[in-house]
């Protein structure tokens, strides 16, 4: 269905993640901006476990080798289909031979760094251990367990309604569900096991300082830079299971937020955890940008997750109404 014409590195096939394989040492993988991937699938009437392509190096070009309905979400990349400009967060039908081009992410009302290309019916790669996400460390899942290269061809599954030549878009959740602290994007954090073993100065810095996203940030982890977070006395922990969002603090005091390709266990002390409902915000934070942490409570964290779920459900309802589709479930 599509052939990759040019890609920098690190474009991978991702779905919403691989659940239930932690006990074999297999991390979750999955889209860093799970909300953008979900919205792309909603625009196309896809199942919610459909896979798309996560793109983080631009420009990116793909040629459609067959007629195909597709959606682009995530970072606003001045997308064009041949010479037709496409708005961000958009669904469009392409004819065989047309070329989709994604340029450098535009920095504006929302600065983001990862784009998602979804295909009607989803990217058709085999499910491995229950997911189509690329598991880089294990070299399985996605397309042959690796990042995409020029010349790679990907098929789409059977589209929900491939004949509908209808274009439309969604307003990005960054605008509908904004979260800022002062003038900076923010994510909500729950304190973790070793929080109380850090100094008052560390607590103050965590909640009040600005954290810079360093160039050593990637799908494995976001290495942040700011006031060093130091424990009252050195902390020893035994290896234990961890999840994306855990904020580990190595001895140098510079926190690392575990992301979707993080290993499923670790031994560094944990000062907090970015709540699941906000991980997409961090996943879109560009290298060099600055963020803040907001302390939250269990109830507010649950409410944040419900708010996101409501946004997705409402988007699906509106898209269904607009398309007049009926689904069997």
């Amino acid at each position: 269905m599509i052939e990759i014409v040019t890609t920098g590195a690190l474009a991978t096939v991702q779905d919403r993640g691989r659940d239930g394989a932690l006990k074999w040492g297999v991390g979750s993988s999955g889209a860093l901006d799970d909300l953008a991937l979900a919205a792309g699938n909603i625009l196309l009437g896809n199942d919610e476990d459909a896979a798309g392509i996560e793109i983080q190096i631009f420009p990116f070009q793909a040629r459609f080798t067959a007629d195909c309905v597709f959606a682009i979400t995530g970072a606003d990349c001045a997308a064009t289909l041949d010479d037709l400009p496409l708005p961000p967060w958009w669904r469009q039908t392409a004819k065989a031979g047309q070329i989709l081009n994604l340029g450098l992410p535009r920095q504006g009302a929302w600065s983001a760094s990862r784009a998602y290309l979804c295909l009607g019916g989803g990217v058709d790669v085999p499910q491995v251990l229950g997911s189509r996400s690329t598991q880089m460390r294990g070299a399985f899942g996605g397309l042959d367990g690796r990042a995409l290269r020029s010349g790679d061809r990907l098929r789409a599954g059977p589209a929900n309604n491939a004949t509908k030549h209808v274009s439309f878009g969604l307003s990005p959740p960054a605008l509908d569900l904004p979260l800022m602290a002062g003038d900076l994007p923010a994510v909500r954090v729950l304190p973790a096991a070793e929080y109380d073993q850090y100094t008052e100065a560390a607590h103050h810095a965590l909640w009040n300082d600005v954290w810079r996203v360093t160039p050593q940030s990637n799908r494995y982890g976001y290495r942040l830079e700011g006031t060093p977070l130091l424990p009252v006395t050195p902390i020893e922990t035994r290896s234990h299971g961890i999840v994306p969002g855990v904020i580990q603090v190595p001895p140098n005091g510079q926190p690392i937020v575990q992301m979707r390709d993080a290993q499923p266990s670790g031994g560094y002390p944990k000062i907090g955890v970015v709540i699941a409902a906000d991980l997409w915000r961090l996943g879109q934070a560009p290298i060099g940008s600055r963020i803040r942490f907001i302390r939250t409570s269990w109830d507010d964290a649950i409410a944040a997750g419900e708010q996101t779920a409501r946004w997705l459900a409402e988007a699906r309802r509106l898209v269904d109404l607009h398309c007049g589709w009926t689904r069997s479930h």
């Binding site: 708005p87 967060w89 439309f168 969604l170 307003s171 959740p173 509908d176 988007a315 509106l318």
Partner: peptide, 8 residues
């Protein structure tokens, strides 16, 4: 704009 939907 209809809710979060954007129709061209």
């Amino acid at each position: 704009r209809i809710g979060s939907l954007l129709v061209p």
